[in-house]
Simulated assay, not measured.
Amino acid sequence: MKLSIVIPLLNEEESLDELHDWIASVMQSNHFLYEVIFIDDGSTDDSWKVIEKLAAENPSVKGIRFRKNFGKSQALHAGFKKAGGDIVITMDADLQDNPEEIPRMIALMEEERYDIVAGWKKKRYDSVIMKNIPSKIFNWAARKTSGVALHDFNCGLKAFRREVIKTIEVSGEMHRYIPVLAKNAGFLRIGEKVVQHQARKYGKTKFGADRFIKGFLDLITIWFVSKFSKRPMHLFGALGFLMFLIGTAFAIYLGIDKLFIHPRGRLLTDRPEFFISLTAMIIGTQLFLAGFLGEIVVRSRKGRPRYFIAEDLNL
């Protein structure tokens, strides 16, 4: 069995040597055949120089450097594309994920025949107000919306079977929802393991409070994509039909009222129901058009690169 450890990073030069040595020690003590793929997501410090040094010293170390910061999802996508292991591990580069959890996660995966084993940072060493409480709210919403019963969608430490990461497409900011993407692709055996979380040793976190806002927006996006990405007309067409039906109902009411009940009453254009009817019909028509355009896009879209690699090592 070969392992691929995929590590996206941004400005983590201080932690890379220690992380590499820690991973190498765990891999050697467990007799794993392995590769470590560092993806430098546009760092402005000397992270890439450290990766070059590590790659020169250890052929199991491989590197990818982006021309600029494209985001964690794009970094993971690049790493997944190059990963050659039977099991792929993702983890962060800040030393908060413990490499010693990797053998235990693999053992659980083999024992239970899981497609994915996700880490759960049950005891965290982060700010309670800034991270812990928002994270609990976010994870609760993600469980309810996605149907994937994980406690910690944000944990970077996860283990995947090769066929999972070669099947799914990680784009935008969807790295939090890789288990959901996998579930939508038919990989239903998703497990979870409590893992040791550690306080950040070097530098400062790259994530602010805005990541939770983005997380909730991405949650809405993935809900929509999961249900309607291949059939947008089912959503927009249904909403359009409903709005047009409401507009038509008001128009019929106004017509009957004007012709048979109050023929000498106010002008139709003086009544609020007229504008409700007109607005509902226009919105309904626009929703229908949005559905048709969505169907056209779905049928004609072609893959486009979401990032550009400046150079790579040992790949």
Rank of each mutant, 00 (worst) to 15 (best):
S127A: 00
D270G: 04
N11Q: 10
D86F: 00
G291V: 00
F216L: 14
R143G: 03
K201A: 07
K72W: 14
E18R: 10
G247T: 05
A78V: 05
T44R: 09
T248Y: 09
V88W: 01
A141N: 01
G79Y: 05
A185C: 12
I89T: 04
A249G: 14
L239C: 07
L259W: 13
V164H: 08
I252C: 13
D17P: 04
K82N: 05
M130E: 10
G255W: 12
D94T: 11
D40Q: 09
I256Q: 08
G303Y: 09
S29F: 03
F236P: 02
G240V: 02
I116Q: 03
F38P: 15
F224L: 13
D17C: 00
Q198W: 03
V6Y: 07
F70P: 04
L242C: 09
G147H: 07
R113L: 12
Q198K: 06
N139T: 04
N11H: 12
E273P: 06
E273Q: 14
F241L: 10
S29I: 10
G240P: 13
G215C: 09
P103E: 04
Y114P: 01
G84V: 00
G79P: 15
R200M: 14
L254T: 09
L278N: 08
D17S: 03
M281E: 11
G303R: 13
A185F: 13
I220D: 07
V117N: 06
T285M: 12
F32Y: 15
H234C: 01
G208E: 11
R104H: 15
N154D: 14
W22F: 11
G284W: 00
G79E: 06
